[in-house]
């Protein structure tokens, strides 16, 4: 921890070495976050780059009230949301009425992270963003609605839709796996 404090202090003084150390420490984790909010590796790298530039620009404002990891993640998520916002504007999210709840939850325990990531990336942009914010980051629908300037109902229905698509995909994969090993 003292080392992290030193690195933060170095970054606050504009020391390039410290900035690189901070990047090394958090870039892999943040790349995984960026990937969840993007459609491709290239887009994720753009988000990561833009996010880290913002981090270094604003690190002087970091007061240590939360952990540096959490603070960095918040910035990366905000950057990702800004990236997706234009797409959300082009394809406005609407309430999804007919989401059936009949599909039972399937386990993702056996699924590799990369595969799960791909499934999330394949979701429609609106669903993808809301699913990430709700299911992974743990935000409430009220908070998500405020963040994305949408109705709470829209957030809920988009999440339900995302979950439905995921379940269907998992089910397909499960069937395909079973057939393959029979």
């Amino acid at each position: 921890m003292p080392r992290t404090k030193e690195i933060i202090k170095g970054c606050q003084n504009g020391d390039r070495k410290s900035q690189y150390e901070l990047y090394q420490q958090y870039s892999s984790g943040m790349m995984a976050v960026a990937l969840r909010y993007s459609k491709s590796t290239l887009e994720a790298e753009d988000i990561l780059q833009e996010g880290f530039i913002k981090i270094f620009e604003n690190i002087k404002k970091f007061r240590g009230e939360s952990s540096i990891g959490y603070w960095i993640k918040r910035i990366i998520i905000n950057t990702a949301l800004n990236h997706q916002r234009s797409k959300l504007y082009l394809y406005p999210m609407v309430d999804v009425e007919d989401v059936k709840e009949g599909i039972e939850s399937l386990s993702v325990g056996n699924l590799a992270v990369e595969d799960l990531m791909e499934l999330i990336q394949d979701l429609p942009t609106g669903c993808q963003v809301i699913f990430n914010l709700y299911a992974v980051e743990g935000y409430q629908h009220k908070e998500i609605a405020k963040m994305l300037d949408i109705n709470i109902g829209t957030s809920k229905s988009q999440y339900a839709r995302a979950r439905k698509i995921l379940m269907e995909q998992l089910e397909k994969q499960s069937k395909w796996g079973n057939e393959r090993f029979q």
Partner: peptide
């Protein structure tokens, strides 16, 4: 959601 969250909790991808 819990299982998804735990899956991604320590996920790392080298940029």
């Amino acid at each position: 959601n819990d299982s998804i969250r735990s899956k991604f909790a320590s996920a790392e991808v080298q940029p």
